[in-house]
Write a protein that binds this DNA or RNA. Structure first.
Lengths: 144, 144
DNA sequence: CGGGTTCATTAGCTAGGCTAACTATTGTGA
DNA sequence: TCACAATAGTTAGCCTAGCTAATGAACCCG
């Protein structure tokens, strides 16, 4: 794959379409049970952090608080997340993954035949390396 | 950025989260007027192809026909897309971009201060090259 | 101590997807 | 030639994913 200098204004539509289409495809493939990608992502962030407030989790996931309220409600309904009162501030709650939530994530991390992992396994090593680097840059862009 | 061998099962969550978060961000930034990213993408595909049936456009955009029916209805409402009867098959319609639709896309292609284009302009050339290559791979994954 | 700020939630909305079912049209085989 | 199967697009209904504005409870600061 030879390098071609593509100006940002031309790369933007290409990247946007790629992101849009892959996102659709990824969302259809429920990686674990019937959790949505959004729920899975929030649960993963919660587990990585140990505990977060709804506002913090919303920030990490790049959504507004009301959206996170609903996501967390679903996870709580399924027993995957617990809420505890904030030790010093009555306005806040502390969220953490329950053992059930951790188990779901453990299972997810071991899945090798999940759609995206399988597709990635079919790529060449250099292509995977490109995507690994791209993932970091894309996360950076999302934080901008 | 040194290369690190990351197995596919580990890369999958990283890539998925990156895609999910950037997709959210990209959707908030309406690149042209008040067209959504989905509408813009469909209109772009239509313009590139010259004319497509709803089924064909749905295939290109990786959505189901009922979804494309609704997307096209919105574009038609705004006078950006026209429907014409199929010359030989009464079941089908032919979709094409109107002059208004083409003008919108011309305008979009000239926008340099659109959010994503600006973010990309701020990256290093090697990072942009990584994303250019990644966009191709991601499109390929979306077609899988 | 009162007003402003913060936190999370609720209400209401749009967009984006899907499946199942439907209607109209075409194609095929007996 | 006709009946049935298949196809194309749409409609209905549903769920997910987001947002903003408003609300109530709690906290902070002058």
């Amino acid at each position: 794959m030879t390098a071609k200098r593509v100006p940002p204004a031309q790369l933007a539509p290409q990247l946007r379409d790629a992101i849009t289409r892959l996102n659709r495809r990824v969302r259809q493939a429920r990686p674990v049970g019937d959790l949505t990608v959004t729920q899975l992502s929030a649960l993963t962030s919660l587990r990585l952090a140990g505990a977060l407030t709804p506002r913090e989790l919303a920030d990490v996931e790049r959504v507004q608080p009301p959206t996170m309220t609903k996501i967390v409600a679903k996870l709580e309904e399924r027993g995957l997340v617990r809420r505890t009162p904030h030790p010093t501030d009555g306005r806040q709650v502390i969220l953490s993954a329950t053992e059930g939530g951790q188990a779901v994530l453990d299972q997810f991390e071991r899945v090798r035949d999940e759609w995206l992992a399988r597709r990635l396994a079919e790529l060449t090593e250099p292509d995977r390396e490109t995507l690994r680097q791209a993932a970091e840059i894309l996360q950076q862009l999302a934080r901008a």
